[in-house]
């Protein structure tokens, strides 16, 4: 189903010489989303949120991260999927965003994969089936027969945070 449209495609992924990008995969509903590991500061279990009055539906609220106040956004709800924070034992991924720390609520943390960034597919066909704004997505990847969508944290957070 996945087309390989670059020369470096699959063969590149097989060779260790290629710079592989490590990504953490998260489960949201039936999808898997990948975020580059170097953007992730830590992953913490769910904790009570202090709501932000007037905040958008996908904004969970504020949490206390060892004395720092961090705003948490529900990754699922933000992408128009089922809210991840509805699960009582969801996780919060703390990502670095323009010098700040922001939380992304995800249903579950799956695992870490190493992918060749050049193999990420931006095939319209695959992405269209997701019904998610294309700007948020870097492409579709595959690791160990598992398909995931690499997301662009900056694009997801830019329109939200002021």
């Amino acid at each position: 189903m996945l087309q390989i449209d670059t020369d470096r495609g699959l063969s590149g992924a097989a060779e260790p010489a290629v710079a592989l990008e490590r990504m953490v995969l998260f489960v949201v509903g039936e999808h898997r989303f990948g975020v580059p590991i170097d953007r992730i500061r830590e992953i913490i279990p769910a904790r009570p949120y202090t709501p932000l009055p007037g905040g958008e539906a996908f904004v969970c609220g504020l949490i206390n991260l060892r004395g720092r106040i961090v705003t948490v956004v529900d990754l699922g709800a933000r992408l128009g999927l089922a809210p991840a924070s509805a699960h009582p034992d969801h996780s919060i991924v703390i990502v670095e965003y323009r010098g700040k720390l922001v939380g992304l609520a995800v249903q579950e943390v799956a695992r870490i994969v190493a992918v060749d960034p050049d193999t990420l597919q931006s095939s319209a066909e695959t992405l269209r089936s997701l019904r998610i704004d294309r700007a948020y997505l870097r492409g579709v990847g595959e690791a160990d027969d598992e398909i995931f969508v690499a997301v662009e944290p900056d694009e997801i957070l830019d329109p939200i945070l002021v």
């Binding site: 009055p53 905040g55 720092r68 106040i69 961090v70 939200i160 945070l161 002021v162």
Partner: peptide, 13 residues
């Protein structure tokens, strides 16, 4: 007093 990151919709209060 600590700062926090407001979201676009947050009331300016």
């Amino acid at each position: 007093v600590k700062s926090f990151d407001q979201t676009a919709g947050t009331l300016r209060l």
